[in-house]
């Protein structure tokens, strides 16, 4: 197999979702511009070009409010599944395994191996940080994207206020506006439902061959075995 072909095969999941992200983002830009222009016409304003639309905070906040909720979802799920279990779920550890687990199970400290990541072998603060790096990075991206959505949402809100000849608000003022919290909560609620569904539905339902599911023939009572 050539190097290029093996790269594609080895990274099919990351590449496929990266590609679908770009395609759907273009879809959002096209449909968002059409929707925005329909609103402009209703308000007796000039329609804008797609380039104007994708460089507007209106597009920016629509993108970022969805990003932030996805990273909140993963951040919460990563941390919650350390401490909370769901009996029978493919997404859960066995009841009784709640918590950080032993150094032996986690292959840290004296149980680190020659091929363990460098920060695991280093010990001290580096191992402490690396042991939480997935949750920390997801949580950090959530905070960044939520902050970005607040800045773009503020600008978009103010341009609507101006179009309606209403007073504009400061960024801090926008954080107290219903618009900001409505955008946040409407995305958060769907993530919580989706994550809860995944945890609970995977107790009784199967997807043959998916690591997100238990093997088809495994008992409903069995927790955490993926296949």
């Amino acid at each position: 197999m050539t190097a290029a072909r093996s790269f594609v095969k080895d990274n099919a999941l990351g590449l496929a979702f990266g590609g679908m992200f770009l395609v759907t983002l273009v879809g959002q830009a096209i449909s968002g511009a059409a929707d925005y222009n329909a609103q402009q016409v209703t308000n007796g304003l000039e329609p804008v070009s797609i380039l104007d639309y994708v460089t507007s905070s209106s597009f920016g906040v629509d993108v970022m409010e969805n990003w932030q909720s996805e990273y909140l979802q993963f951040f919460l799920y990563i941390f919650a599944t350390v401490w909370l279990v769901q009996r029978g779920s493919a997404e859960s550890k066995e009841p009784g395994d709640e918590g950080m687990e032993s150094d032996e199970e986690q292959r840290v400290g004296e149980h680190a191996r020659a091929d363990s990541p460098a920060w695991v072998r280093a010990g001290g603060w580096r191992t402490t940080v690396f042991s939480r790096s997935l949750g920390l990075v997801m949580g950090g991206i959530f905070l960044l994207t939520w902050a970005a959505s607040s800045v773009a949402g503020w600008a978009a809100y103010n341009s609507e206020q101006l179009a309606e000849k209403q007073d504009t608000v400061s960024w801090a003022g926008y954080l107290g506006e219903a618009d900001f919290w409505n955008r946040s909560f409407q995305n958060w609620q769907s993530e919580m439902l989706a994550v809860g569904s995944m945890a609970v539905l995977s107790v009784y339902l199967r997807q043959r061959g998916s690591p997100e599911s238990k093997p088809v023939g495994v008992s409903h009572a069995e927790t955490g075995e993926t296949g």
Binding site: D10, L15, V61, M64, L144, V151, A152, A155
Partner: peptide, 30 residues
């Protein structure tokens, strides 16, 4: 693993560029 690392860096780059781009749009009041 070198190709995988490139994909990892690409994902983080896209996320951070997206955040920076939207923040700038907002700060410019566009």
């Amino acid at each position: 693993m070198r190709g995988v690392r490139r994909l990892y860096v690409a994902y983080l780059t896209v996320i951070l560029l997206g955040v920076a781009y939207v923040t700038v749009l907002g700060l410019m009041g566009r």
